[in-house]
């Protein structure tokens, strides 16, 4: 298993500001967690960055892991491609503790990547990023004819839908017939 250490730079303790020392709150060392996607590449992410994800935030909020325990137990997201998880982690790091801007221009423009990112972000429950992604998805079809939209968003025609439905019914019928035959065989 390989490992990358994403977000470590943002984990550096902040320099004291102009506030008097006596009034400064005691610094709590930032905790880190580890996640990996389908490619098993582990990403180290600060708890602050992970706060964007309601799913992960909910998972870690009561764990109280030590650094070692966290490292030994990376969160597996087998349903997310490695490069997509990398994008998510990057975004979470870039926007850690910052107000989210109204637009995000760094999102992928290719539809395959964008759709995969949308699915990942929706699964991880990262609300702001999901909104940006959905805006980007909507942007893809601006000024496009229905035929172009169909192509961009891979929307089947009515005929294709009907054919797929027929095929699905046929398959379901065959499966049901197979199950009935198997049940009859068992009974014998």
């Amino acid at each position: 298993m390989s490992s990358t250490e994403q977000g470590t730079s943002s984990a550096a303790p902040a320099e004291p500001t102009t506030a008097p020392e006596s009034a400064a709150a005691p610094e709590v060392p930032e905790s880190f967690y580890y996640v990996h996607g389908k490619d098993k590449v582990v990403h180290k992410v600060s708890a602050g960055a992970l706060q964007h994800s309601a799913l992960i935030h909910g998972m870690i909020s009561n764990l109280g892991y030590t650094e070692e325990q966290a490292k030994a137990n990376p969160f597996p997201f087998e349903n997310i491609d490695g490069d997509i998880l990398q994008m998510v982690v990057d975004w979470c790091n870039q926007h850690k503790g910052k107000p989210t801007p109204p637009e995000d221009t760094n999102l992928p423009k290719q539809k395959e990547k964008l759709f995969d990112l949308v699915l990942a972000v929706n699964y991880l429950e990262i609300k702001e990023l999901l909104t940006y992604c959905c805006k980007q998805v909507a942007m893809m079809v601006k000024g496009k004819s229905p035929e172009e939209i169909r192509e961009i968003w891979m929307i089947p025609t009515d005929a294709e839908d009907e054919a797929a439905e027929k095929e699905a019914k046929k398959r379901a019928g065959k499966e049901a017939a197979g199950e009935t035959a198997a049940a009859a065989g068992d009974a014998k």
């Binding site: 759709f115 949308v118 699915l119 999901l130 959905c134 998805v137 909507a138 079809v141 891979m154």
Partner: peptide, 23 residues
């Protein structure tokens, strides 16, 4: 490959909200 219509309900909902009636 992910198709638009296969996206989760919530995602489609958000996409539709970003679109103009003409689109």
């Amino acid at each position: 490959m992910v198709k638009f219509l296969s996206l989760p309900y919530l995602v489609k909902d958000l996409v539709f909200k970003e679109m103009e009636p003409r689109e």
